[in-house]
Structure formats: structure tokens, C-alpha cells
Design a protein around this nucleic acid. Structure first.
Lengths: 158, 158
DNA sequence: CCTGAATCATGCGTATACGCACGTAATGAT
DNA sequence: ATCATTACGTGCGTATACGCATGATTCAGG
């Protein structure tokens, strides 16, 4: 019952709280927290393929697709045929989407600030580093092998 | 573009990676990561009301209900009428559910260990503390007031 | 060139995650 | 006792998050 077992729970609690709060803030603008993440990724690198976009969002291609359909209907993103690869599609923010994103960025400022205050006097650097290491360590690529042999299934935990 | 803006993204990436990995591990046992969280909560405090259970899971009552329906069908939880409050229902693990949870706990050990190794030589204590503070700070109760007045919406971010 | 493997997007099915509204029941104030 | 408020569970609608299968291409070898 040490902190070891609490780390997953704490991570979950923090993420869900952040997600709920963000959804609430962005709702006024007709946008969800995840749509904001997608637009943020696009604002940093336009004309990505859907797959690359999904990778940068730590998300799933089919999920991203569903989100893109919604965002395209809202007029915030454009999807076009990839110039050289006719399988792929490139995604980019529209002009309206870019303006919207700047609004959203400001709307989210309060939450980012609040998160900083919550960890004060700690700085985000070390926290970001630890979270990133966890994310990378648990990414499917690395971990498939090292986890496959945990079959001490029949023993109890005390 | 400092770490301030990266903290939400890092938190999201870490949580999603953990969730995916957990889902993969628990899938062999016919259980999802979130169902594991629910059963873990029940294993610590039986005979909770659905609402109290939702609170402890940092989750939503209607979500929890849907999960309980599934878990009850699988035979892992029981829902009964609350002895004194006829609106409420009490939830508890069945005998089968308890045994199943011990299996799941062991199956999840590898992931918990891997998370610890990812942050080594850091210990989980401080990380858990920070995450908990973030979660509490962003819980809807506290934050409704302090966030409601962030209407510098029309300005840009540089 | 031509075939088999890898890659991209899509669609389908399931499980969360939530907000919201509704019906019922407990509770508190008059 | 009665009424308004509050609290609990349920159902509905929408958006994610994923795995998996499928179709269309690209690409690497031969």
C-alpha cells in the first residue's frame, strides 16, 4: 500500500481532473479539451498526415480521424490529399481555426497557471521530465517485450 | 513554449500511455484498466454507495453505473439496496470478484514496477504529492470560482 | 515490371467520461 | 405535517480511446 501503488491512481486522478476542468473551460467556445490538444499540435506543425498528428498527440489514428471530421465540419481544419502519397491526407488549421486556437490558448491560461500554483514551489521542469519518462517507458514499442512474462498470476498480494 | 505549457501535455501523454498499457495487460483477463480501478476501490472499502465509489475513483456516477452493470454481468460485483437509504445502492465485490482482483493485482505489478524504474532514481513520494495537489487544485469544487473570470479572451498569445 | 510486405485512412464495435434531465426519496425549515 | 431543497440512481446524447479488419497505395526485392 506504499506510494508505489498510489502512483497510477494519482496520475489518473490528476489527468482526469485536468481534463474535466479543461472541458469545462473550453465548452464556452464550443470545443473539447481533446480538440484543443489536436489544434495545438496543428498550430505547431501544419500539413501533417493524420498518422503523424496522432503520434504527436499520443493518440490513436482512428480517434484522430473522428475528431478531424468534427473539426472540419466546424471549419477549423482542412484535410487535403497528400501531394506525393495518395493514401495519406494532410491536415492543417484553417484561418478561422488559427484564430480560434489563439482564443482557446488564452482561455486555457488560467488552468495552466493553476497547475503551476498547485505544485509551487516546485517547478514544472522535473515533473515534466518524470512524466515524459513514464510515458516513453510505457509506450507500446518498448514495453511489449519486458512485460510479456509477468505470469506469477496465481500468487497473492498481501 | 516553456515547461509551463508542456506540463498538461506531459500529464496527458503519461496517463494515456499507462492506460493503454494497462488495458493491454488486463485484456487477457477480460477486464479493462478502468474496471480494475473500480475493483481496487471496492477491495479497499466494500459496501459503498455508487456515488461514494465514483468519488473515490475520481470518476462520474453515470460512468460508474455503466461499469457496474458490466461487472455485475460478469459476476464480479453485487449491487444491493442500501439498508437505510432506499434511494441508494451498495456495491461490493463478490467472492469471485475478490479472487479475480488478486489475479489482476499481480498482473499489474509489472506496470507499477516499470513506472518506478522510469522515474528512478526519483522516488514516487514527491511525484504522488505533486499529482495529488494538481488533482485537488483542479477539482471542480475549488476551481469554479477562481477560473470563472479569465475573460481576456480577445487578446493574443505571443 | 510484378508480387508480397508495410503503410495510410476508414469503418465497426466496445468501453469510458461526462453533462443534463428526470423520477424518487431523504432532509431541513416552517 | 408540509413544502422546498437536496441527494441518489438512471437514461440519453456526445465525444474520446482503442483494437481490429478492410481497402487502397506505396515500396522493396527479385
Amino acid at each position: 500500500m506504499s506510494d508505489k501503488s498510489e502512483l497510477p491512481i494519482a496520475l489518473r486522478a490528476a489527468y482526469l481532473a485536468m481534463h474535466r476542468m479543461s472541458d469545462g473551460q473550453f465548452a464556452k467556445y464550443g470545443i473539447t479539451a481533446d480538440q484543443f490538444v489536436l489544434m495545438a499540435a496543428l498550430s505547431r506543425g501544419d500539413a501533417l498526415t493524420q498518422r503523424e498528428l496522432a503520434r504527436r498527440m499520443t493518440s490513436d489514428p482512428s480517434t484522430v480521424r473522428a475528431m478531424l471530421v468534427i473539426l472540419a465540419k466546424k471549419g477549423f481544419v482542412e484535410r487535403e490529399i497528400h501531394p506525393t502519397d495518395s493514401r495519406a491526407r494532410t491536415v492543417a488549421l484553417t484561418v478561422v481555426g488559427k484564430r480560434k486556437f489563439r482564443q482557446l490558448w488564452n482561455a486555457g491560461e488560467a488552468i495552466r497557471t493553476q497547475m503551476l500554483e498547485a505544485i509551487y514551489p516546485e517547478t514544472p521542469e522535473s515533473l515534466v521530465r518524470l512524466l515524459t519518462r513514464i510515458a516513453e517507458s510505457l509506450s507500446v514499442d518498448n514495453a511489449t517485450v519486458s512485460l510479456s512474462d509477468s505470469d506469477s498470476t496465481l500468487s497473492d498480494h498481501s
